[in-house]
């Protein structure tokens, strides 16, 4: 019994005969393990699972934040799909954002990772430098800076004006405003880049040596060795970044001043959810939106996992 609960490194086979009493070993006292886990378990229960359960309940209610929620069954969900054109506008904006920002970000991350993968003394510096935007990018301060850069008479507008292209500021132009946010997302390629770097280091040098002997050029090497060997990492990053992109909020909130404008061109799903919940006091409706998002993201993740069988290559399965 004790051995089956072992958490530690070595699993011993259950002894056939009773052994002499001994001190319980570290790792064989589950109580202690749970004690150490408790900050995270409590955090997960109180800060994630609890609120999620609450929001599931609220999604079936009419709740205005201040008074007691009233149970209204599926009415929120019905209104969402039947009677809310802005909901579909928000879905469309979000889908466009995910489809644009995720691939661009991954390409940027992989490109920079490959540049940095070359051994060099300054590699550490550049790695940190390229990672920095990921640490800063989700912050309000950077979103504010971004807004200024792409605003009328901002750096981008002024530079383009010198070239004779007058855009009048991207932020307040419904045609370009979403691109500003895509650019902000792509710029934060640091996290997938670091993962790509680690993945690149895992690829055995022999493969490259062999292909060099066979006379493969850089493109061929990339296609036939780097990409397939890296595909599990690409897959990992793809799933993670897709989920992140669906959840994007801060940039849109700050750049559009919380309004999702102009003409709802930056009305991200989460931003619309926020507006419903906190400016229109319809928290039940907002909760229903949150659950629709959870389900959609879960489905998309499942689909990604399905397609993974077709293109993700795990070393050790060469025989397949």
């Amino acid at each position: 019994m004790t051995t089956t609960r072992t958490i530690g490194r070595r699993r011993t086979t259950p002894p056939a005969e009773p052994v002499p009493r001994r001190r319980p070993r570290y790792g064989e006292r589950p109580g202690l393990a749970y004690l150490f886990l408790s900050p995270w378990v409590l955090g997960a229960l109180l800060l994630t699972v609890g609120p999620m359960a609450a929001s599931l309940y609220l999604s079936f209610t009419d709740y205005d934040l201040f008074t007691t929620p009233d149970w209204i069954g599926l009415a929120n969900y019905r209104a969402l799909f039947g009677d809310d054109p802005r909901f579909f506008a928000a879905v469309w904006v979000t889908v466009k954002y995910v489809l644009l920002s995720t691939p661009l970000k991954l390409v940027a991350a992989l490109a920079v990772a490959m540049l940095l993968n070359r051994v060099s003394r300054t590699q550490g510096f550049y790695r940190s430098a390229f990672y920095a935007p990921s640490l800063l990018g989700a912050s309000v301060a950077v979103a504010l800076v971004w807004r200024v850069i792409f605003d009328e008479r901002g750096v981008v507008d002024e530079s383009l004006s010198v070239l004779g292209v007058h855009t009048g500021g991207w932020v307040s132009n419904p045609r370009y405003s979403l691109l500003v946010l895509v650019a902000l997302a792509v710029w934060q390629f640091g996290a997938p880049m670091v993962i790509f770097l680690a993945g690149l280091k895992q690829i055995p040098q022999e493969y490259y040596d062999a292909s060099a002997v066979d006379g493969a050029g850089p493109w061929r090497t990339f296609r036939s060795i780097t990409l397939p060997m890296l595909s599990p990492v690409i897959f990992f990053n793809l799933v993670l970044e897709t989920i992140h992109a669906f959840q994007a909020f801060t940039g849109a909130f700050v750049v559009s001043g919380g309004r999702g404008g102009p003409v709802d061109s930056t009305l991200f799903y989460t931003l619309y959810l926020y507006q419903k919940g906190f400016t229109e006091f319809r928290m039940g409706y907002a909760s229903a939106m949150a659950w629709v998002l959870v389900i959609v993201v879960a489905i998309i993740t499942a689909v990604l996992f399905r397609t993974a069988r077709l293109w993700v290559f795990y070393a050790g399965e060469e025989s397949r």
Binding site: G168, S172, N173, G257, P262
Partner: peptide
């Protein structure tokens, strides 16, 4: 004012 300026009035 043109649309780009008007939309920013908050």
């Amino acid at each position: 004012t043109p649309a780009e300026l008007t939309t920013k009035m908050d």
